[in-house]
Nucleic acid binder design. Sequence first.
DNA 1: AAGCATCGCAACCGCGGCAGG
DNA 2: CCCTGCCGCGGTTGCGATGCT
Length: 261
Amino acid sequence: MGRAPCCEKMGLKRGPWTPEEDKILVAHIHSHGHGNWRALPKQAGLLRCGKSCRLRWINYLRPDIKRGNFTDEEEQSIIQLHQLLGNRWSAIAARLPGRTDNEIKNVWHTHLKKRLDLSAQEQHEEAKKRKKPAAAARKRDGKVKMRKLDALTAKAAPVLSSPERSVSSTVTESTSASASVKEECFTSSEESEEFQIDESFWSETLSMPLDDINDVCMEPHDAFGKPTGAADGDMDYWLKVFMEGGDDDNNNNGALDLPQI
DNA sequence: AAGCATCGCAACCGCGGCAGG
DNA sequence: CCCTGCCGCGGTTGCGATGCT
């Protein structure tokens, strides 16, 4: 449809940015802002397309960007947020000030995904070994609910771990995805019996159409005590729901605590 | 020391959503 | 309603850096 050609390639520079270009872009944005990315390069005298400028600014030149390695807390947050939000990197980035969606995406693909895959494998094998006794024990003390949280906190969330699958990319997709998610999480019938509460959690959460989710979030909630835009209201809500849901029982391992952002 | 493999990051590409005409 | 233009997002690629043989 009415999509602008990616870049008019005529005479526009591509590839790595030079320090001079960076300077020009920063100076121009500081004095004029970036109202119109498409027009910006012309105004600033840059031989770049607007997209390129925008990307450079957002991912690299913005003054509030935090550089350097991700902390353990940040990594944990990414893992948890990814579990909740899927590949919505921009939404995840919105929860991690100073980090860009691109950066988070890179970290996910280069570090976290592999780590999760690995530990998922380990856990899976471990679970195999002690499946029977463990299941019986859980039935006894009825701490079924925590499995959901285990799955989320452990670096071994079954859903996350599937290398082929990029966890349902959006919450909205999940209506149909929920079935397969559940299928993946709970393979044996014995297990599925244990996960009654999880089932309802997932079916309620995942099967809810986005419209309904938005309805629920008439008032944007702020789970982190900072003002949120309307667009983020739904995510805040679900984050909150999720975190509160994990507050009961023996949730004392601290791993679920999202850092104060 | 040289060649090869792997990793990590910056940047690009193409699509979808949205707004305005 | 349709068309067009712009923005933002997520997936992918390219390439330098680093590690390994």
